[in-house]
Design a protein around this nucleic acid. Sequence first.
DNA 1: TTGTAGGCGTTATCAA
DNA 2: TTGATAACGCCTACAA
Lengths: 345, 345
Amino acid sequence: MSRPHTWKRFHHKSRHTGAVVGKRRDATLDDVAHLAGVSVATASRVLSGRGPASKAARQRVASAATELDYVPHAAARALATRSGTRLAVVVGGPTAHVLNDPYVGRVLAATAEAAAAREVGVSLHWQPLHDPAELGRLAENRGIGGVILVNPTEPALAVVPKSARVAAIGIGTRDIPSFEVDNRTGTARVVEHLLAGGRRRVAMVTGPSWLPCTGRAVTAYLRAVDEAGAPPRLVPGDFTAARGEAAAAEIMARWPDTDAVFALGDLSALGALDALRRAGVDVPGDVAVAGFDDIAFAALSRPGLTTTTNPVEDIAAGAATAVLDRRRSSPLTFYPSTLVLRESA
Amino acid sequence: MSRPHTWKRFHHKSRHTGAVVGKRRDATLDDVAHLAGVSVATASRVLSGRGPASKAARQRVASAATELDYVPHAAARALATRSGTRLAVVVGGPTAHVLNDPYVGRVLAATAEAAAAREVGVSLHWQPLHDPAELGRLAENRGIGGVILVNPTEPALAVVPKSARVAAIGIGTRDIPSFEVDNRTGTARVVEHLLAGGRRRVAMVTGPSWLPCTGRAVTAYLRAVDEAGAPPRLVPGDFTAARGEAAAAEIMARWPDTDAVFALGDLSALGALDALRRAGVDVPGDVAVAGFDDIAFAALSRPGLTTTTNPVEDIAAGAATAVLDRRRSSPLTFYPSTLVLRESA
DNA sequence: TTGTAGGCGTTATCAA
DNA sequence: TTGATAACGCCTACAA
């Protein structure tokens, strides 16, 4: 209970008054253990939550820790536990330019917040399509405690070691839990809304074909129009505004009687909307336009863009906490996509 | 040169062929040292770049390291060197909502990329205005190797320990190097462009008053209009589209002969543009509108928004590398703001 | 210029 | 349930 050697008592209550205080050594596990009158081993068990500890010990260690304002040293813990010190966010895409996508920014910010709460950092990486070598190297990196795959491709999923702590957004496998926008339902809602508004010939501008979620949305679209006895009208897209413009022109040339355009991705929808209006088409009078994602500008465009809003931050946070807490989560978690009605449809 | 004990030779060339390989222990400094035939100390000196080492040793260690595909264990290094394992991005603002700002996403993504190259992670934090206590705690956290302050306030700057490795974006001090958009020049360019286009009564919608860069831009605006003999017309703003709308109404009510509106922040500019058009004002015929920042939607709006583009990613990367490399950089680095001409002005 | 050895702060093993 | 003690992988006096 008492130490044979003198112990430099460590105590600094209410340090953070806003003023710059003299730099003092931060509290260490030793400090906590001594203040609580137990061994470091016991203190460690209590604070890390693993291993046995008596009610009494648990109590004393806990109060000692708060008393000393103890914060575990992340690096030391990572070293001892071989757990890695950061969470890698790996984004699949044709070029490194995807890292500048606002969507990636949202995912990264939410991930970083969740990670910060657990004393871990985040790093950002680009995963070239069809070249998963870099991903393998990343997953093996000892500094990396977990990986969040954003829009991975099949080959990328295949190369991730089964041992790694991984979650995915966009598509997963049996071994890799994934956190998804329920864009099947989201798409259905949009198409149903268009049909309910009296539109009978609804065309769809898809997303890039390599993106798994594109397939799910297309399927949902085809099913919805089929059930309504409406003709399927598909045009490939890539989420860009430019492609949306071209797609709209293509649609009106090929099927002049089209009365609604649904684009997977708001940028494409806005591009289509713009192209239609420039061509003298009244939106939503002649043709309704709807998008997907509810980016900030959807509310700012004139007319406002009817679209679907997705809880990207929740999804990213879910994936991050699943990885960080090593939770064995269900292989597939869907987050609801909600229709947002504006003037365009 | 030779070890007394048997050494489990560690060697795994070309592991990363894309296939899932059997998990093998990663190369450690010991492995490198042995392969190079030197002590760990020497290997460490060579690889960390500090301390003396003979040409020969340097050479052998280097090739051994690449041969073994050696990557330093970030946690171990951080532990030994007390350097921290992640970079904190701290964003000042009225509410935690600022963390969802696309601008923050850009900064974070660029920072995370720069950090990833140095085996460190990034975490994201909100700094409430006028309550720097949390910042002090953060700067003391042993896990944090550096701090990047985004739009800090004066009290926040004051509380950062001088010892900490800190850089700022938005405003700095003598001790805290800052990396800035040259929005004085940027503002001048915009106003000059408006004047050159024949506009004589240019109103400005400012940014939030607590933001230091707002002051710089306002000063530049006042100077530019003064030099042209034009009347100063200032209306407070907060970067939001809603405020831009209200500001436009305010401007036209107060100074009906205004022929140009310059808003600090594209969202406000777009809001103003929208309000003007709804009020039957022709843009740019009657009134020109210009913004600042060149957000994605500036190009998508109709008419396209004339604005200024800023190298946010470069700025963030500059701040990050300055902190990570412990570079003693000049106290103030400006990045150019470039005029982007579109239809609105 | 080099090597030996002692931390850095936690966790985990193994007796007690 | 507890407490020594040996890792964990790297850095760095210090001595050679």
